[in-house]
Design a protein around this nucleic acid. Structure first.
Lengths: 212, 212
DNA sequence: CGCGGCTTTGATGTTCATCAAGTAAAGTGG
DNA sequence: CCACTTTACTTGATGAACATCAAAGCCGCG
């Protein structure tokens, strides 16, 4: 959200509460009651859905100022996904009932929330379709570029996800994520030191992400 | 939307306009300016995104009282998907600027819109993840059950989609949609007369949809 | 130091897309 | 309304993409 909306909401809400989480900690557990509206103040988190069988699918990754209690907040009474911290993170929570009252009284606030929620949902849907079209190498490239271009703003960064999580994000197996990464390394597109990624040949990676 | 929201919006909007479309007609063209808020009054439509290369991906299918100008409305100034009628349909459009003004003045309206939009987006995301997990036969089964359980409320119905469109919806090839259908027929799960589908063995189909 | 989780690579088999070719159905123009 | 063209549907054969299985190295942590 931009700073205007942000201040707007802060001003409007008396019941703001901050909570710190360590990397790996569970922030929201699916199927629990939604009582609060949550956004991310700092850090990085993943939103995901897990199966009875234990497997997980990552829906999206949320950055500071993103709403963590995504869509379900206003449509459901329980979460249908979980959230855990990928890095040490701080969340802000507002009492949901309180926020609802505010929105009823203040259409401007409601409209700006609607706008922001729409943007987030839209991006998830578009990205999912985009990823579905691609072959495995293209998916991995797309993911690396996401971190490079939209999260860390650098061609060198530490992956906040394990290989397994990367696989869960783009719908492939861990082994094939690794294979794709290894191929990129062999082709001189990347340098890899464990979780540290250095994108050497950005152009090639971009064309793989687009056409692969 | 439920009838309360519905009346609410009707009452609030002076500029309502109805438009009829024949099956196959384009209702919204992606990348065009969004000027109106549109919902479906009767019929059935598909929302889809198309590639430079000409291929299409179906995002979802909208039923009467669903919002057709889905998420983009409040987050974008242009549509990032197209809409065409799958059956003869009637849409209702409201002037978007007008609606925005109403929402600012009327938080209750804004909140109810937010709720409804959230529900729709949520369903799309969940369904997409659900489909991604499944094998081809499971995807086709899932799709058939969607029509049976949520659109036509009958075990016998006419598919509103071509085989190709079914493929575009669930992310597989036309040939494999057909192959799955043929297999279901051979296994005595379906009877197929062109576009008419009769689900004979509902239980088996459900278990394929769930575990396939 | 040893255990468990994460990572990596190779070998194997399955699932699926692609290609090809033919039939049926649905428009289209004379 | 009929010949003609196009679009939709169907089946089979082939190969490519991908998941699965297996085994080993690595790293952090108790």
């Amino acid at each position: 959200m931009d700073s205007l909306e942000f201040e707007h909401m802060e001003a409007v809400c008396s019941s703001k509460k901050e909570t710190e989480y360590l990397s790996g900690e569970l922030i929201i557990k699916e199927r629990t009651q939604i009582r609060e509206f949550t956004y991310l103040k700092s850090g990085l988190v993943k939103l995901f859905k897990s199966d009875p069988s234990g497997s997980e699918q990552i829906i999206t990754i949320a950055k500071p100022m993103d709403y963590v209690s995504l869509l379900s907040v206003f449509s459901n009474d329980t979460y249908n996904y979980s959230v855990t911290a990928l890095e040490d993170s701080v969340t802000c929570t507002l009492d949901l009932e309180n926020l609802r009252v505010m929105m009823r009284e203040n259409g401007e606030l409601a409209l700006s929330l609607l706008q922001k929620m729409s943007r987030a949902a839209d991006r998830i849907i578009i990205d999912t379709l985009e990823i579905r079209k691609k072959h495995l190498r293209g998916r991995v490239a797309y993911l690396l570029l996401y971190f490079s271009d939209h999260v860390y703003f650098s061609s060198e960064f530490d992956l906040p996800l394990t290989r397994k999580e990367m696989a869960e994000y783009v719908g492939m197996t861990t082994e094939n994520v690794i294979r794709s990464l290894s191929e990129f390394r062999k082709d001189g597109i990347l340098k890899i030191y464990g979780k540290t990624i250095h994108i050497v040949n950005m152009e090639t990676l971009k064309s793989i992400a687009e056409f692969g």
